[in-house]
Design a protein around this nucleic acid. Structure first.
Lengths: 339, 339
DNA sequence: CTGAAAGCGCTTACAG
DNA sequence: CTGAAAGCGCTTACAG
């Protein structure tokens, strides 16, 4: 075990007090430039690292932010979306020399609450990032009570209870509906994630609004992001009689499920039915047919989320650059509406 | 900000010393059962949480283990393997009330070294999990020097410099080769990941050994886990003249690349060429054709890795349950060898 | 079984 | 600009 070098060691060697060393190391006023240089040089030479626990204990930052992922592990393994968001988060944190404490819990609502409670109680993190906001989300009052900085990612109203990072949901819905309308489709099935999730409700509202402006009709089917459910819902709907010609699915996995179910029912994609995914990924690229999808820049989004949280922790305004327009990647799963 | 409850508060309320409270809370001897009960009851009532930094500073555990993922973010987003391993790790850590500090760095070798140095210096973690061991891996001497507990995941020799968790690579190679041999294949292309990775070298050796026992021949092509490279290598090999009839790829993404390249070259899968993936995932299931793949139980593997590290940290032997046999999921990408 | 005390390595008022 | 000191909330010998 390498012997730890402390600021006490640095102070002794330099004939300074620990306070001066601390000021020098932290870029605080209170030491001459010359002293600071000497301190920094010695710290580097002796490979001094600040003890994160000592720092945290004496009231400074922990240098860590927390993220609780509330999805089923199997789904996390198949949906590339979160891994990409995660890598964007990491990129932002690295720049700020922050660490990420990651926790995966199941998808049942509320399983994450004790984690925040504990993190706050133990003083583990400086803040947390929240995804998948729900109606009357219990995390918001909880985090307020705990006094833990937090950022709501994917929220609609910037003026909400917590600072938020918003995606371009409006533009997303418009792009998708526009494409389908242009292809002659007039009826859409919107295959959503669980309706308890606010972004699913918002998306559905925006799709309906855009559709109705274009004189189109929308049927909503509530899925759960899994392929199995998407296949079942699609099969049922196709069998129930005259079905819409366009399907919009909330993620890539469900879009694939819709395509597979259609194939199994003898419904041609895109001949009889067009399919669009709200998330792009390799899954969409390799589907047969490849699936038209929105590239919502998940890495970029993760990066913005982390930066917003860091700004919140630092108390320096939100610093959010605002949403970036998604790119609709048109592939073979969409085509002219059947007559 | 909720006021922090400390053991001092508990001690005062109960008329005990902080030491007694600490002993009671930590299940240490030195307090009567009755006292312990009272302490625990009050701690629960006041929602006391141990300050992780105070604990860590006074020499106890940090309660956190670290993981550095050294792959390109884009690849992490497409390859489901790591997310599944991660969820297995999380499951084991939750049981032990441990947290996971996650860091993603690029795939250039060595980018992770400063992270370990820093984590050790800052006293951030109790140990780290190592994946993707390389020949003369610099992490091993580094971690030894730093005195940071570590576990090598995916290593072959249990008697190595660090405790290790081993997959059933032998069985994996045998299963794959056996399947192909039974289908009449006699020549295999082994599309590997970077040869600097020890598990790639071992796999290749095992595939060659199993093949040669069965009178088969193996050609090795070194890929980098990406689809692009796999497509290019496959295309080149197919064009170069009489190619083997069986392709074994080190991950699902490369297997897909091989299938796509074959299709583009007018080579039928599995009519002309069979393809097997070393990793199973949704990508394999939805491929056209669906790809025969080894389910190496990545969640289970992650779970074992985390448990081994926790055992190492606790100093309680390795506690590894040993490898679990992988399951070869035979799908439409493999068939009888062309005459 | 219990208490008083030192110490972990920092940060931060407070004096000089 | 610098130093002596208190304090963060625990754990852990050491006495009783």
């Amino acid at each position: 075990m390498a012997e730890r070098v402390t600021i006490g060691d640095l102070a002794r060697r330099l004939g300074l007090s620990k306070a001066s060393v601390s000021y020098a190391l932290n870029g605080q006023p209170g030491v001459s430039e010359q002293t600071r240089e000497r301190v920094l040089a010695l710290a580097r030479e002796l490979q001094w690292y600040p003890s994160s626990s000592a720092r945290a204990l004496s009231g400074a930052r922990t240098g860590v932010v927390g993220l609780v992922l509330s999805r089923d592990p199997d789904l996390l393994g198949t949906e590339p979306y979160y891994m990409l968001v995660l890598s964007g988060i990491e990129a932002a944190l690295i720049d700020a020399e922050y660490g990420l404490l990651l926790r995966m819990v199941g998808s049942e609502p509320g399983r994450d609450l004790p984690v925040y409670e504990r993190w706050a109680g133990e003083g583990r993190v400086d803040g947390v990032m929240l995804f998948d906001q729900r109606r009357d989300d219990p995390r918001i009052p909880l985090l307020r009570r705990l006094g833990l900085p937090a950022v709501l990612n994917g929220a609609a109203e910037p003026g909400a209870a917590l600072p938020a990072v918003v995606p371009d949901e409006h533009g997303d819905a418009d792009q998708v509906v526009e494409l389908l309308h242009g292809l002659g489709h007039r009826r859409i099935v919107h295959l959503t994630g669980p309706s308890g999730l606010l972004h699913e409700e918002r998306r559905d509202g925006l799709v309906r609004a855009a559709a109705s402006r274009a004189g189109m009709v929308v049927e909503t089917l509530e899925g759960d992001y899994t392929m199995g459910t998407a296949e079942r819902l699609t099969t049922e709907r196709l069998r129930r009689g005259p079905a819409p010609t366009a399907w919009v699915a909330s993620n890539d996995v469900m879009a694939l499920g819709a395509v597979r179910a259609a194939a199994r029912e003898g419904v041609d994609v895109p001949g009889d039915v067009s399919v669009v995914s709200w998330d792009d990924s390799l899954l969409c690229e390799i589907g047969s047919p490849p699936i038209t999808a929105l590239d919502r820049h998940p890495r970029d989004f993760g990066h913005r989320c982390a930066r917003a949280l860091l700004a919140e922790i630092a108390g320096t305004g939100d610093g959010d650059t605002g949403p970036r327009r998604s790119e609709l990647r048109v592939r073979a799963s969409t085509g002219p509406a059947a007559a």
